[in-house]
Design a protein around this nucleic acid. Sequence first.
DNA 1: TATATACATTGCAATATTACGATGATTAGA
DNA 2: TCTAATCATCGTAATATTGCAATGTATATA
Lengths: 109, 109
Amino acid sequence: MGVTKSDLFTEQQNELARVAKVLAHPARIAILQYLIQSNTCINGDLVQELGLAQATISQHLRELKETGIIKGSIEGVSVNYCIDPIRWSEIQHLFETLFSGFPKIPGCC
Amino acid sequence: MGVTKSDLFTEQQNELARVAKVLAHPARIAILQYLIQSNTCINGDLVQELGLAQATISQHLRELKETGIIKGSIEGVSVNYCIDPIRWSEIQHLFETLFSGFPKIPGCC
DNA sequence: TATATACATTGCAATATTACGATGATTAGA
DNA sequence: TCTAATCATCGTAATATTGCAATGTATATA
């Protein structure tokens, strides 16, 4: 199959999985870290920074954009990408909720 | 292709992506949440709880186990799974590092 | 020992992801 | 207007993921 039965799960579970999937590639992690550090970037910079083809990076950027993590603004002939602070903390909160749900002192193990 | 060029990235980036990939499925999120809430579970419980086949759930459990997030101990004829607290906070820290890297007041956007 | 129970594994079929060359679209400057 | 630069999109090949039926393995009990 290869198709996820998302109707079996809650919207929160699906949303968290969806976001995790976007983070589930080192190139996209690298792009985000580069964005954080430089607070702006263009596709061309990333082709230099990472060793991937321009088309590939453009595709990764689109996935990040579709989840709302980054926004792009046309800057003449190039495009400036940056992180959406609102969405960023939204996603941060999603993960925090998952992780903090587990009590530090567990009953078993 | 469908193959990730992991040699282009740092070990930290690959590790974060690897962990995110395990979380990138609602069934695995659901399993973890069920584990957190009940602090133990067996495959059979999950077949009831989620609507997936036993083989499918066993596969998801294996992925969680391979990343070290959960541990299983044989309990007679059934198996008790539970979250590994050490690994859990390790992974929590991985994400926190990513998220906290972004300053609250950004320079652009 | 034989049988039932509970998971794990194997072997598919369907679909998704990753990567990139080729090509399109848009903009700045000659 | 023409051209170069920059990014997006399309098409395609290679590989990965998801789900399940069938089967294997181990344990407890009759």
